[in-house]
């Protein structure tokens, strides 16, 4: 059995599937409680049902884009782990960058299928699990106190001004992260003569610019849900061509 077959074996599906099932059960409990509480406090049944219907339809398209993310990661990590990570806590851009940092920490040149080992996989799985769990831990520890404090103080102005730089700081952090990676791809070209990562990056950016043209100029907002995953898949297809011809 080769490594990808082992990473796609039934026990790994069972482990990941069980955790996903627990999340489903938790979601169902919250949903039923909220629905009953809504009726009990006098909310209109139609409003509650419309919330469920609109949220379900709103979610279908982004869910397909998340599925494309599972496909993108499945070549290097197998299917069960990306399935778990993108169903619980994760988001495509977080998971991919953390997996790459984890792969480098264990001595691989990055997140790539050809160098993957079983120990690298279990280490990456642990780092992906622990690395992005902090928002969830915050929710367990601080939600009650934080919401009580906000409701009692009612100091919305202070909160929104913090939020103003909070958004900007998150964007800036990503810009810093992406800049470091682009720098490394430039050096990969100049020092190793390998242009593929830089070309793939350029292709992905180009495809994203086409997506943004249709989203912004043609008002095709629904494309927003597919823009990142779509750009990635086209760029990955280009990587196959570069691999064949460069």
């Amino acid at each position: 059995m080769n490594i990808i077959e082992q990473l796609n074996s039934a026990p790994l599906y069972l482990i990941c599937g069980f955790i996903i099932l627990c999340v489903i059960v938790l979601s169902v409990i919250f949903m039923l409680r909220a629905y009953r509480a809504g009726l009990a406090i006098g909310m209109d049944k139609i409003v509650l049902k419309r919330t469920i219907t609109s949220s379900a339809t709103f979610t279908v398209l982004p869910s397909i884009s998340i599925l494309l993310g599972v496909i993108a990661l499945s070549g290097s990590l197998g299917t069960p782990l990306p399935w778990l990570r993108l169903s619980v806590i994760g988001a495509l851009h977080y998971e991919t960058s953390v997996a790459d940092v984890a792969a480098r920490a264990i001595g691989l040149s990055g997140l790539n299928a050809s160098e993957m080992t079983l120990q690298a996989f279990s280490t990456i799985a642990l780092l992906m699990g622990v690395g992005i769990i902090w928002g969830t831990i915050c929710s367990v520890l601080f939600t009650k106190g934080y919401l009580n404090k906000i409701q009692s103080s009612g100091n919305k102005k202070k909160n929104s001004s913090f939020g103003g730089f909070g958004d900007m700081a998150m964007s800036a952090m990503f810009i810093g992260l992406i800049s470091a990676y682009i720098g490394s791809y430039m050096a990969t070209l100049t020092s190793k003569g390998n242009a593929i990562p830089l070309l793939v990056l350029a292709c992905s950016g180009l495809v994203m610019s086409i997506f943004m043209y249709f989203i912004d100029k043609k008002n095709m907002k629904w494309l927003e849900n597919f823009s990142v995953a779509g750009s990635m898949l086209v760029a990955m297809a280009c990587a196959v061509l570069f691999g064949l011809f460069l």
Binding site: A72, L73, G75, S76, L92, H93, T96, S97, D100, G110, L111, N112, A113, S114, S171, F174, I175, I178, Y181, I182, Y185, I196, P197, L198, V200, L201, A202, C203, S204, G205, L206, V207, M208, S209, M212, S227, V228, S231, M232, L233, A235, M236, A237, A239, V240, F242, G243, L244
Partner: peptide, 22 residues
Amino acid sequence: VLQPAFDNVVPALFGAMAYRYF
């Protein structure tokens, strides 16, 4: 033949993200 695609998941992600953020 598809391996270069899976070896370049990260550049593929950062190209799209770079365009959006930059």
